[in-house]
């Protein structure tokens, strides 16, 4: 007897099924909310925090990653590190010093001790001379 499951597009079934399932549930939640049956608790996301703090922070991390592709590990880590320390309300001098320490410590742990491949910069390759 021929197995019942022998189509050529089998690989699409599960992701398609899951997408429909998730969309349907999300749609149901939205409809219930619109109909007033279900009321989400007062939005816990503070729009001001989201726009002024969270999104800039995520963008900074993404820029940091892009910076690593362009300039290698050291310079983007130092610059992004200083900005991240500053975001956590450290003063500029402390942020710069802490960032320098963090850049060196992580370099030694990951690239020297664990012998991780140090990504070279595609535009300018600024390596730590250690």
């Amino acid at each position: 007897m021929e197995p019942s499951f022998s189509g050529t597009n089998e690989h699409r079934w599960v992701p398609l099924g899951m997408s429909i399932f998730v969309s349907a549930l999300a749609g149901y939640l939205i409809l219930r909310q619109l109909a007033g049956v279900y009321r989400a608790e007062a939005s816990p996301i503070d729009p001001q925090s989201l726009m002024c703090l969270i999104l800039p922070c995520v963008a900074l991390l993404a820029l940091y990653a892009q910076g690593t592709i362009w300039f290698g590990y050291a310079a983007p880590t130092f610059v992004s590190g200083a900005l991240i320390f500053r975001l956590f309300r450290n003063n500029w001098l402390s942020s710069l010093i802490q960032s320098l320490v963090a850049t060196l410590v992580l370099y030694v742990i990951f690239f020297r001790l664990l012998k991780l491949y140090n990504p070279p910069g595609r535009v300018i390759d600024l390596q730590i001379p250690l």
Partner: peptide, 21 residues
């Protein structure tokens, strides 16, 4: 924590890179 958390942020970056370089 204002010093501890930024260190963790930076460690996350290198850790994520380390998984598959």
């Amino acid at each position: 924590t204002r010093i501890l958390f930024p260190y963790i942020f930076l460690t996350c970056f290198v850790s994520a890179y380390a998984a598959r370089t």
